[in-house]
Design a protein around this nucleic acid. Structure first.
Lengths: 341, 341
DNA sequence: TTGAAAGCGCTAACAT
DNA sequence: ATGTTAGCGCTTTCAA
């Protein structure tokens, strides 16, 4: 980093004190006469001065930087979240740091520590696994928005503000499954995530509830990683009686479609398919994939607002008894051809 | 950010000076006796001290933060790059900031400024358009790794180190096209990007060269945005004589396959398809997509090395006459079924 | 309305 | 081997 002009250079150039330069730049906290303001502004332009955000953060005791910590930055669902979040934060003059835990708990912990060192003011967290490492969350200072924290947890004392994205995994799975049933399908299997994961179990629960409500027998539960290859492998475990499959995420669904094609099975004719946590890309698969999607734009906006809103309580060890903050997310069904529509 | 323990607290706890604490933490620059070291380490553990990276950066005059500035974080190719880069930087104890220009030049400029304010030590840049805004690049202090800077540019004086990812767009397009021809296809069209873009023209050039070399007539050039929808629309502009299509990027190819399916055209039977800048997802399209891919892992490693390598020259206005730094990228053909393989 | 100066937490040159 | 202290660039209180 070369020698860049500092606030001192600007002050000198403008013939004022350094404090005044601050007042001008920050529009406060003290007023500055129009004349002086002009001189400062000119000096800034002349010197090509750019404030040093690092120094500012140190003096302020808080940074303009936030972080997104997820399990897989290349997962379309998460990549889209990164994109939306960056947009919103940038619009608010904030920066976004990213971390990819790669589903590794140790790595996740290291990233948390790294973010703390960098004094990030807030963290958006899609945790490695359910149940989440609550101790680490509790100890984390600053605001934490949890993307995959299950509802109905006991409020626990935490070192900072906690906000939960209110996702109902079970309901989303149910919506997708019900749609498959509405097409007259009777044997709906599920490609589930690893069963030790809570979100996986919740999705299974929703799938099952839809089938129970219809008075039908549940189809096979095929467990697979939340990956494309996991979905592909699952396709080869499908019995010939199955006429529909609910996939627990879009990547699995994508692999499933690929696997079905390999087996020479037609979707939706032989097997109808629907998934949850879909993205914009679902519409361009062959056949176009029916998914339940979350309104990422609004969600990202709410998250950014929550992050940058002045912390209501800065203290330590506060219990979130004040009606636990949550961000709403209204899932909607986006139909393609994979379901038979 | 709550009141966290500082180096002073640690020093007090350990009964030493603050300098010694620094020496221990940084393994230098002065030696510390084993006894004292232990006491400091214990004090650190006891207080739960975590160094303040912001303060460290200020004192050092350089940060451990780097930035990735791209046109579309949700583009699989770029998302994969973000992931790989984050991995490599994290392994080196560095942080990664992301910026999404959304193909907007003004936004790109704003992001550049924001990164400068944050004192990022290096920037990885996939620029909005060709030709790149060279003035902004030249003025950028610190190391800049350019992901889509064409080769053979005049060396220009710049404010920091400049590294170019050595991609030969033309060659990659040619590789994909030649592969289509090797399957006996004779009428190869191209879905090209916007023609005002240099990279688009280079890809057209490579496609054309392959066809010329084979002594054939070039097929239709269909211009479309670098998006899935662009590719889909292109499918509807294909004449019945076309027996193969080269798509200029993976998103276009994905849309193209979708569009072909909509039209009832079979790939690869009716039309063979191949693309460049493919990702791991290509293998799971239907049919699996043949692409030319760049070795993202090694590339990310080289970029991280370039970024974190001590700057050979910190000065201002240095011309890169010293054999312009470049990072190699060896494209390889990854075959799927879309080409007829 | 403006200026002087005390920090913010850390590094490292300079003393001891 | 360890301690003292002057910055790094900025914010903001306190004086003027």
């Amino acid at each position: 980093m070369g020698k860049r002009p500092t606030r001192d250079d600007v002050a000198k150039e403008a013939g004022t004190s350094t404090a005044v330069v601050s007042y001008v730049i920050n529009h406060g906290p003290r007023p500055v006469s129009p004349t002086t303001r002009r001189r400062v502004l000119d000096a800034i332009r002349k010197t090509g001065y750019l404030p040093n955000g690092i120094a500012k953060s140190l003096a302020n005791g808080s940074s303009d930087t936030y972080a997104l910590l997820v399990t897989d930055l290349a997962n379309p669902f998460l990549a889209q979240m990164a994109q939306s979040l960056e947009r919103e934060l940038f619009a608010r003059g904030k920066d976004l740091l990213v971390g990819d835990s790669g589903d590794d708990p140790a790595r996740q912990l290291d990233l948390l520590e790294a973010f703390q060192r960098q004094q990030v003011s807030g963290l958006v967290w899609y945790g490695v696994d359910q149940p989440l490492p609550l101790d680490a969350i509790d100890a984390y200072p600053g605001t934490v928005v949890m993307l995959n924290q299950p509802a109905g947890q006991e409020p626990r004392p935490s070192a900072g503000r906690r906000v939960r994205l209110d996702v109902d995994e079970s309901r989303e799975a149910r919506m997708a499954t019900e749609h498959l049933l509405s097409h007259g399908r009777r044997h709906v299997a599920i490609v589930a995530g690893p069963t030790q994961r809570l979100n996986s179990r919740e999705r299974i629960h929703g799938w099952r509830a839809a089938i129970d409500d219809a008075g039908l027998e549940p189809g096979r539960i095929i467990t697979a990683p939340y990956t494309r290859e996991g979905g592909r492998q699952a396709a080869f475990q499908l019995g010939s009686d199955v006429d529909a499959v609910f996939a627990s995420n879009e990547m699995q669904a994508m692999g499933l479609l690929a696997g079905l094609a390999e087996r020479g099975m037609k979707a939706p004719d032989d097997v109808a398919v629907a998934a949850m946590n879909g993205t914009a890309g679902a519409a361009y698969l062959v056949p176009s994939l029916t998914t339940v999607q979350l309104p990422q734009g609004p969600i990202a906006r709410d998250i950014a607002n929550a992050l940058t809103r002045n912390e209501p309580s800065g203290g330590t060890g506060r219990t979130g008894r004040t009606g636990e903050e949550a961000i709403a997310s209204a899932p909607r069904l986006v139909t393609g051809h994979s379901c038979g529509c």
